[in-house]
Amino acid sequence: MANTPERDAVTDAVTGTATTGHEWDGIRELNTPLPKWWLWTFYATIAFAALWVVLYPAIPVTGATGLLGYTARGAADQDRAAQAAAAEPMLARLRAAEPAQIVANAELRAHAIAGGRVAFANTCAGCHGAGGQGAPGFPSLADDDWLWGGKLAEVEQSIRHGIRAPDDDASRTSLMPRFQADGMLTAAQVNDVAEHVLSLSGRATDAAAASRGAGVFAENCASCHGERGAGNREMGAPNLGDQVWLYGGEKAQLIRSIAFGRGGVMPAWEKRLDAATIRMLTVYIHSLGGTEAAAQ
């Protein structure tokens, strides 16, 4: 082959290898041939892909699962079943132990808090907020103010049977009447009793109205909330003298609560969650810091 100028343009003088014709600052890109085994490796990956298409689901048609019958959903179900089986011994121990016993045992407590955190995010956080911080109308589970009792057994009872849950006969039930809407109190009386309630936490603005409201309170409210407004957990009646307000502590919010009543509903979870999950939820809520010791 004659050493023509064309050939020099495409062949690298040092290596004798053809160049691609690309040149950067006088440096030419060599067109080094690939080794044959590289080509065969490439063919092997094609063969692997073909085998894969036959063995595993690759065609987007329902029922085309491949010869092995593998489905991602089936594999996930198997994984979940395996995990459930692996968790079962611990869940059985949690079911068998009272919440107080779980709390007293570091190992059980750690498992219950970890599992309870997940269950809480799934089922409770929608209303009570992540971390149980609560929202207007949905009580905080991290504070020390409990409508129906903050001992572990009481918390568990609330989770199992709910609050005013229509489908559970054991549900905790009470009703804050609609004092003005149902004509029991006039607007002026509602205003007076609201001023009185404000005075219970030291915030009265109108002393005359507050003292007029004391009488209205004694007649209409004290039966549930107590003479001094300290609340009654039997009735789920909140303490009106503390700093925690479920529906807001401003006067306008108090008037609305008195005039039109309140009655939040929580589902009875016993029918939807298994006993171990309810135990774990109870212990998780305990870990938020607001629950009360059984001795109190």
């Binding site: 907020g129 992540a130 971390g131 149980g132 911080q133 609560g134 905080s140 991290a142 103010d145 700093q243």
Partner: peptide
């Protein structure tokens, strides 16, 4: 971080 702080009954 959730809740950032808790207000207790006594304030």
């Amino acid at each position: 971080r959730s809740p950032l702080f808790v207000r207790l009954a006594d304030g």
